[in-house]
Amino acid sequence: MKHSITFKKQLSEAVYMIKVRAPLIAEGRKAGQFVMVMIDEDFGERIPLTIADADVAEGTITLIFQIVGQTTQEMSKLNVGDALAVVVGPLGTPTHIKKFGKVVCVGGGIGIAPLHPIAQALAKAGNEVTTIIGARDKSLIILEEEMQSIANNFIVCTDDGSAGRKGLVTEPLEEICKQDKPDMVIAIGPPIMMKFCALTTKPYNVKTLVSLNSIMVDGTGMCGGCRVDIGDQVKFVCVDGPEFDGHLVNWDNMIARLNAFKPCESNCRMHKAADKKAEEYK
């Protein structure tokens, strides 16, 4: 199976959207699921990316990714007509979609991408959807129109006030909890944002789902690398998640584990950058 890229668009400075051919995944995927992607079968890394959307007729899935390291950097250089070596999925447990009543969807940064299909499905199931999206500044906000079109209420926040409200997403979230207690909140974004969303809703006893982005190797429950503490249990994000009750997540451990390979990653990248420089000087 050749996973050709059929569409590419840059959404913000470091965020790209691509569509890739993967007909079986497009057909079977549900909101909340992800794929493992490799750009090279021999030496590439397996990275998890959420299925942001799918087109069954066209046989493609949409991926939205932010450049953070080696693989996402290389991926951003691929163009329409190029192909990804591996796309496997759909993995993870789908979001439990039903009519809850009033739901608040909170998305931060690149987390807006995985939130989109979930908000879409929740709206379709008849929920009254309030969407709060936030980013550091205006240029980092993605999918604004798409999110707005499916929300009953729509709030944008930026740290510097360059778009929407100036401030953090937790502020409007707290106001909503106070004024008009929602039936459910789902928050997806940087771990620190999810942690504080969970802390915000806890006193109001509002069920809060979060989508964890732990480091993965296989994505099929084989390696145990993605494990997190949920209450007094150890769960694997790739099979039991990625969504969990935010009030039960051991955030400090989860966030610490994200940095497990930081020294090794930077070594390896510095190494490669140095090689490239040397190459240029030749």
Partner: peptide, 16 residues
């Protein structure tokens, strides 16, 4: 599987 022993080529990091 991910050949992380080959630090020259592999993208997958290995814990030091």
């Amino acid at each position: 599987l991910m050949r992380a022993y080959d630090t020259e080529h592999a993208d997958t990091p290995m814990f030091k």
